[in-house]
Simulated scan of single mutants.
Amino acid sequence: MELTPELPTTFNQENFHEICDQLAEMDADLKSVLEKYGYPPMWTRPNTFETLVHIILEQQVSLASALAALNKLREKTKTLTPETLLLLNDEEMRACYVSRQKAAYLRGLALSLQNGETDLTLFPSLPDEKVREKLIRLKGIGHWTIDVYFMFVLQRIDIFPLGDLAAINGTKRLKNLPAATKEEVLEITNHWKPFRTVACMIIWHFYLSRTGVAAAPVF
Rank of each mutant, 00 (worst) to 15 (best):
M1T: 08
L3R: 11
L3Q: 10
T4L: 15
T4N: 11
P5E: 13
E6N: 03
E6C: 06
L7A: 14
P8K: 06
T9Q: 14
T10V: 10
F11W: 02
N12M: 03
Q13S: 13
E14M: 09
N15E: 10
F16A: 04
F16P: 02
H17I: 03
H17N: 12
D27F: 04
D27Q: 04
A28F: 10
D29Q: 12
D29K: 07
L30W: 01
V33Q: 07
L34C: 06
E35T: 12
E35V: 12
K36D: 06
Y37H: 09
Y37G: 03
G38V: 11
G38I: 09
G38N: 10
M42P: 11
M42R: 12
T44Y: 01
N47Y: 07
T48C: 08
T48W: 02
E50L: 08
T51N: 02
H54E: 12
L57T: 11
Q60T: 04
Q60Y: 04
V61Y: 11
S62N: 07
A66P: 02
A66W: 05
L67P: 00
L70A: 13
R74G: 13
K76F: 14
T77P: 06
K78N: 10
L80F: 04
L80N: 05
L80H: 02
T81E: 13
T81H: 11
T84M: 09
T84N: 13
L86K: 10
L86N: 11
L86R: 10
L87F: 15
L88H: 13
D90R: 09
D90K: 08
R94Y: 08
R94T: 05
R94W: 09
Y97I: 00
R100H: 11
K102C: 14
K102G: 14
A103W: 07
G108N: 09
G108E: 06
Q114E: 15
G116M: 09
T118I: 15
L122F: 07
P124V: 10
S125Y: 10
E129G: 03
E133M: 07
L138P: 03
L138Q: 14
K139C: 06
I141C: 13
G142N: 01
W144E: 02
T145L: 11
T145I: 11
I146R: 07
V148S: 12
V148K: 07
Y149M: 04
V153H: 03
L154E: 04
R156K: 06
I159N: 10
P161G: 06
L162Q: 04
L165Q: 02
A166W: 01
G170D: 08
T171F: 05
R173Q: 05
N176C: 03
N176W: 00
P178I: 01
T181S: 15
T181Y: 00
E183K: 08
V185K: 05
E187T: 08
I188H: 02
H191P: 00
F195D: 01
R196L: 07
R196E: 09
V198C: 02
V198G: 04
A199Q: 08
C200E: 05
M201I: 01
W204G: 01
W204L: 01
A215I: 10
A215E: 12
V218R: 00
F219S: 05
